[in-house]
Nucleic acid binder design. Structure first.
Lengths: 214, 214
DNA sequence: GTGCGATGTATCGGGCCGATACATCGGGCC
DNA sequence: GGCCCGATGTATCGGCCCGATACATCGCAC
């Protein structure tokens, strides 16, 4: 999950750890609290070892004349590699069951702007199915087994059920939008003035029937 | 978290692993998918090592005369100890920041029937504060930094913001109920509705809970 | 001139998960 | 009769991620 998010963010621009965490927190604020450094740094090292990203010690640019009174520990800037971009594309295409889970879905969704429409639809529908199942489970418990639960537990289930129903409706709407070729804010792709390039990618071009990876 | 939930469930009746998982899933269905055995069994062993629970191999009752053609692996029934009950009470009383987090709050809430009212209020208010902070964070991002985000990410934040607002309202209602001495289903527990200060729905100490199964 | 909060990198122990393995039992199906 | 399959059941392993902790610098307010 973190791997996916980091690769996605570094695709936009190189960053150092602290910055990465801030961006991550901003982008994923709706789904998870804040990424821990205890996850971030090991993941960065893992990605580096795999060759998806490279480490580039910050060049002091203007300040090159002042070398070191204090042996300042430079910030470590990470940069995605060509292999990393491939990897990211691969991760986007691979929509397994974990893409429908709370966190997995959220992270995938956060990078929908870099995802082709067919995959977006697959994920949205998979997620909907998942949430519907959860919803049915909660309805069952609230129906058949209600008397076995105390009032507080029942209230918790009710609140959860409500959230499920709400999310299903949200997903339905998003799916309908996708099918009619609209982006979530109602605009039609290509009309986004901020960054036309990363808007809806070329329709499902079979850019790579990438087989299993080695 | 698991420790808390297991102790809470075993307080109602002894159970074996599989059963425990089912009950756990039913009770916590609203907050987490399903507990993995990879968490459950190690936790059981941990609890056992600490002396909070004991293992009682199922006695085959009638079948004691047939020892073993097939060395049938009996189900292992776990039972809470006196120390375990103390531990549980301790965990209920200790409301740290993790009790306000998504999962932590959910688990605590699921055992509100065994929690005294003062603690319930503390947790509900702590949770409200937490969710309000999250809500403000999302509003900030959607306000100040909106142009830095693509339409999908914005939509995700909007949905998250909506969920936050909804949860805050839910919590407000629960808090109001607690203050006026009502249980979530609107019933007034036990006694005098004119004097709500006094009743503490499920008696705070060791509860004589209604569901006792032999 | 000193403390303090933001910026910054990093490690460690431990909880929890998904995948996997193995075994029994009742029932439906051919 | 024979067979598979899904539910019941216990258990381990690798790996992700978190919270706590440590340490260092910078700018600024008091």
């Amino acid at each position: 999950m973190l791997e996916f998010a980091i690769l996605g963010l570094l695709q936009e621009s190189p960053m150092h750890g602290y910055e990465l965490r801030k961006e991550l927190t901003a982008k994923l604020g709706a789904i998870r609290a804040a990424i821990s450094y205890g996850s971030l740094y090991p993941t960065l090292r893992r990605l580096q070892a795999a060759g998806w990203i490279t480490e580039a010690a910050e060049t002091p640019a203007t300040a090159e004349e002042i070398p070191a009174l204090t042996s300042r520990r430079g910030r470590v800037v990470y940069k995605i590699t060509a292999e990393g971009k491939e990897r990211f594309a691969e991760l986007i295409a691979q929509t397994g069951p974990e893409s429908y889970e709370d966190t997995g879905f959220g992270v995938h969704f956060a990078f929908f702007a870099r995802t082709d429409r067919a995959t977006r639809l697959r994920i949205l529908e998979g997620r909907r199915r998942k949430v519907e199942e959860r919803r049915e489970g909660l309805r069952d418990v609230l129906g058949r087994a209600a008397e076995r639960l105390d009032a507080y537990t029942r209230e918790l289930q009710r609140h959860g059920l409500d959230a499920c129903e709400r999310e299903v409706r949200w997903l339905e709407e998003l799916i309908a939008n996708e099918r009619s070729g609209r982006t979530p804010d109602g605009s039609t792709p290509g009309s986004d003035p901020t960054n036309p390039e990363k808007n809806d990618p070329p329709p499902p071009g079979q850019s790579g029937n990438e087989s299993e990876r080695p």
